[in-house]
Design a protein around this nucleic acid. Sequence first.
DNA 1: GTCTATAAATCGATAGAC
DNA 2: GTCTATCGATTTATAGAC
Lengths: 182, 182
Amino acid sequence: MTAHTPAQARVIEAALALFAEHGIGGTSLQMIADAIGVTKAAVYHQYNTKDEIVLAVAEVVLAGLEAALASAEASPSPSRAREVLIGGMIDLAVERRRMAGILQRDPVMLRFLEEHEPFRKVMERVNRVVMGGASTPRARVPAAVVASAIAGTVIHPLGRDLSDAALRSELTRQLRKLFGSV
Amino acid sequence: MTAHTPAQARVIEAALALFAEHGIGGTSLQMIADAIGVTKAAVYHQYNTKDEIVLAVAEVVLAGLEAALASAEASPSPSRAREVLIGGMIDLAVERRRMAGILQRDPVMLRFLEEHEPFRKVMERVNRVVMGGASTPRARVPAAVVASAIAGTVIHPLGRDLSDAALRSELTRQLRKLFGSV
DNA sequence: GTCTATAAATCGATAGAC
DNA sequence: GTCTATCGATTTATAGAC
């Protein structure tokens, strides 16, 4: 699913970088076209609206999350599933750094995630695994903390000059404190 | 300092809400004017550029943080200072919810915080208190986790229907795990 | 798949009246 | 402090040639 032509892949890649730097609302199709080195019309030939580009970007970022989610859900125990998922989320976020951060940070993207059913479903699965069993109102807070901490820390100025390996291990160590395992 | 006329206060209040909902880049001066019920020209009479509005909004949000920071820095011990500051940050974030969230989330606002000296100074003081003594690269990660967790959780969909009191106490409980006290 | 050219709307910003 | 009116630039988006 989501088979991209090379031209579409170029649009998505450029959009991802620009969204992270200027925000979705602050990124125009002209900026995307300039970054690729083509005209606006060429971009429109791939995606008919700006929303479609945002959608395609969201799908790419969420695809990695779904992969980690699938292997987590296949785990024998709930605690092991949570361990696998959080580890996968950290890996994804660290690898892409500011790229991944926009997913949970940009106000426009947050709206997208809430309004589009498929995205909501994925986020619900993520939350279910992180929360383990119970889902009382209070039990939902740790899931929000985990998601926020991962997405926020990887793009935080304080972690900018850390290597991927150092950031990953220290972030894992911190999140471990929130649960006991991770 | 930062004495606002009633008209300026209306602009800031409207901008704060719109920035949180649509992002700074996705908010036009026309939208702000419409929200207040005046024309664009009236808004321009208060602030000559969009950047000045962003600046004014940032100052309002940061003013509360500086107050919490001052009382934290007056604490007798570093660990007590951290406890006071994190508590203050939680209070601020919970009270304003999505309002406060934009400070550390919007890409445009992040740029502002990094480029304007006064804001950088405040953030450096916050980080110093949260990190306690040492400031090795790895020691900076917990500070980033704390800031991200607070700012992200209060606007996370999972915490949307929690009361302020419940959100505050559960968030405090989670952050306590990251340190030992809080 | 990419281009030129263009439409219609909106953008940030200004001038000047009240 | 707010208005009308306007500027020039930029926005999303389309038509049609290559």
